[in-house]
Simulated assay, not measured.
Amino acid sequence: MAKSLCVAYLCWLFGGIFGLHHLYLRRTIQCFLWLSTGGVFGVGLLRDLFRMPEYVADCNEDSDYMEKLKIDRKRGRPPFSFARFIGQIFFGLWFRNLVYGAIPDNFPAVDTCALLLPPIGTAVGIYLVGNVGRQKGDLLPPLVVALAFELVFSQEGIAFWAAVVASGVFTWRRKHREKYKSQSFCRRLLLVCVGAVVLTTLVGSYLYFNCEIETEDGEKIKLRDAIVNMLNSPAWREFADAMGILFQRLRHHGFADTFRTFIDLADVEGEQRSLEILGLEKGATEAQVKRAYKKLVVRYHPDKNKEEGTAERFMEIQKAYETLGKIFRSRREKGEQGPGERDRGPRGKRGHEEF
Rank of each mutant, 00 (worst) to 15 (best):
R273K: 11
E322D: 07
S205I: 10
M230S: 09
H301A: 11
S4G: 00
I317M: 01
S4E: 02
D267G: 06
Q248L: 12
R273A: 13
E212T: 15
L33N: 04
L117Q: 06
N60R: 02
P234K: 04
S81H: 09
K306P: 02
V110D: 03
V110T: 14
R96I: 10
V297Y: 04
I317D: 09
H21R: 02
L45A: 01
F85E: 05
E178K: 08
L207S: 00
V194I: 15
Y208H: 15
Y293S: 05
G345T: 07
K326C: 01
L246H: 05
G39N: 06
S184Y: 00
T310D: 05
L140K: 05
A235P: 14
D105L: 15
K290N: 15
A2P: 15
T323W: 00
G279T: 11
F18V: 10
P302Y: 10
A320S: 07
P141A: 03
L223E: 05
A114R: 11
Y24S: 08
R188M: 10
Y55D: 04
H301T: 15
I317N: 03
E271C: 11
A8M: 12
K282W: 09
G335E: 06
L324K: 01
F328D: 06
A8Q: 10
A287L: 13
D267I: 14
I17T: 03
L45I: 10
P118M: 08
T261R: 00
P234E: 07
R187E: 08
V145I: 13
T323M: 01
Y55S: 07
L199Y: 04
L250C: 07
R177N: 01
E269W: 03
C113K: 06
V228R: 00
R273I: 11
S81D: 12
Y321R: 09
T28E: 12
A57Y: 04
V43N: 04
V145Y: 01
A159Y: 00
L20E: 00
H176N: 09
E307D: 07
T28Q: 09
S184M: 01
F170A: 03
F314I: 12
L13I: 14
E281T: 14
T122M: 10
L250Q: 15
A166N: 02
V7M: 03
R273W: 07
Y180I: 07
T285D: 09
Q288T: 13
L223A: 02
F149M: 06
S36F: 04
C59G: 07
Y55T: 01
C31M: 03
I126M: 06
G254D: 06
F259A: 12
V228L: 02
A287R: 09
D217Y: 05
T200S: 14
G345W: 01
R329P: 08
I221E: 11
E286L: 12
D111Q: 13
K3R: 13
I29G: 06
R174H: 03
E307G: 05
E238K: 10
C186A: 13
I245G: 04
I213K: 01
P142Y: 02
R350M: 02
W236M: 12
P79Y: 02
L46Q: 11
R174G: 05
C11L: 03
F262C: 08
K295Q: 12
I29C: 00
D58R: 04
L324T: 14
P346S: 07
L202A: 05
I120F: 14
G351Y: 04
E281I: 13
R260M: 14
G195C: 01
R174E: 11
K334V: 05
L116D: 06
V124H: 03
L231W: 08
I221T: 15
H21W: 09
